[in-house]
Amino acid sequence: MKIKKILVILLSIITLVSLSINYIYLKEHQRKDYHYTVFIDQINTELRHIITNTNKLTEHNLTGDNLQDSLNDLTTNLAIFNHSLQNSVLFIDGVDHKGQTMIGRMNKLITSGYKINQQFIPRFAEDNKLSPQESLILNSFYDLLKQAREQLNTESDSQQISKNRLNDILDLFSSNNFDTLIKRGGSN
């Protein structure tokens, strides 16, 4: 009788501990899913802003203050997006930003200029208008942004996008692709 009572108490304690551990695990899993969903939404929103700003620069023949304001809007959004990509690894398990991103390099190119393959490309709109090379670079960048956003939306519409698939999409913004983007934009 005494052994039966001890077993009942022991099983009750084990059940309570097990339920507590499962509850904690469930909450942690829900928290990670929530952060991941917020991250996907944030990336999507930031891509939309960058696409809108880049489209404005490529579609309209902006000059002077209008051009500078649009470039400032674009570089602000690029900085936010780059920050999100670089910090994603800190709060999302399994998402890798691949080091310095193309987004950071594009931001540097627009604001300060950039040296690539022994050639210095000056900052954008030094003469208050976009050069043909700058327009080509922005058009190539715009195409890449649209491609990434379409892939992201296609995946996230059907289900929650897998982290492996998200990494593949974010890999479009790896710094290795920056050289290719610049070459498509007309740099030698």
Score class of each variant (00 low, 15 high):
177 N>P: 00
175 S>W: 03
31 R>F: 11
157 D>M: 12
133 Q>H: 10
39 F>Y: 09
129 K>Q: 13
184 R>K: 15
60 H>I: 05
126 E>H: 09
35 H>D: 13
19 L>F: 12
45 T>I: 04
84 S>D: 15
184 R>P: 00
77 N>T: 04
120 F>D: 10
180 T>F: 09
11 L>E: 00
46 E>S: 11
179 D>A: 08
83 H>D: 15
6 I>L: 04
59 E>W: 04
61 N>L: 05
132 P>Q: 07
164 N>T: 13
73 D>M: 06
14 I>T: 13
112 S>G: 11
82 N>L: 03
62 L>R: 02
176 N>M: 08
61 N>V: 04
115 K>D: 05
49 H>G: 06
54 T>W: 06
64 G>V: 03
177 N>G: 03
180 T>C: 07
53 N>W: 02
113 G>M: 06
69 D>P: 01
100 Q>F: 07
54 T>Y: 04
70 S>P: 01
9 I>L: 02
54 T>E: 02
128 N>F: 13
150 E>S: 12
56 K>S: 14
51 I>G: 04
98 K>M: 11
108 K>A: 11
81 F>K: 02
134 E>K: 05
160 Q>E: 10
147 Q>R: 09
28 E>N: 12
64 G>Y: 10
7 L>I: 05
144 L>R: 03
128 N>M: 11
30 Q>G: 01
29 H>N: 14
141 F>L: 04
149 R>N: 15
139 N>L: 10
85 L>W: 06
95 V>M: 06
55 N>T: 12
136 L>C: 07
107 N>Q: 15
119 Q>R: 10
109 L>Q: 10
68 Q>L: 15
4 K>A: 00
41 D>F: 05
170 L>A: 03
141 F>H: 04
115 K>S: 11
27 K>L: 11
133 Q>G: 07
54 T>V: 11
170 L>T: 03
162 S>E: 13
158 S>H: 12
98 K>R: 13
68 Q>H: 12
27 K>I: 05
16 L>I: 09
12 S>R: 00
24 I>W: 11
184 R>S: 13
19 L>N: 06
110 I>G: 01
84 S>I: 07
33 D>G: 05
7 L>E: 07
180 T>H: 08
32 K>M: 14
75 T>S: 10
85 L>V: 08
70 S>R: 05
165 R>Q: 13
161 I>L: 09
164 N>A: 15
37 T>S: 12
99 G>L: 13
74 L>W: 02
64 G>E: 04
126 E>Q: 14
39 F>T: 03
135 S>Q: 13
160 Q>L: 07
52 T>L: 06
38 V>N: 06
111 T>R: 11
33 D>L: 15
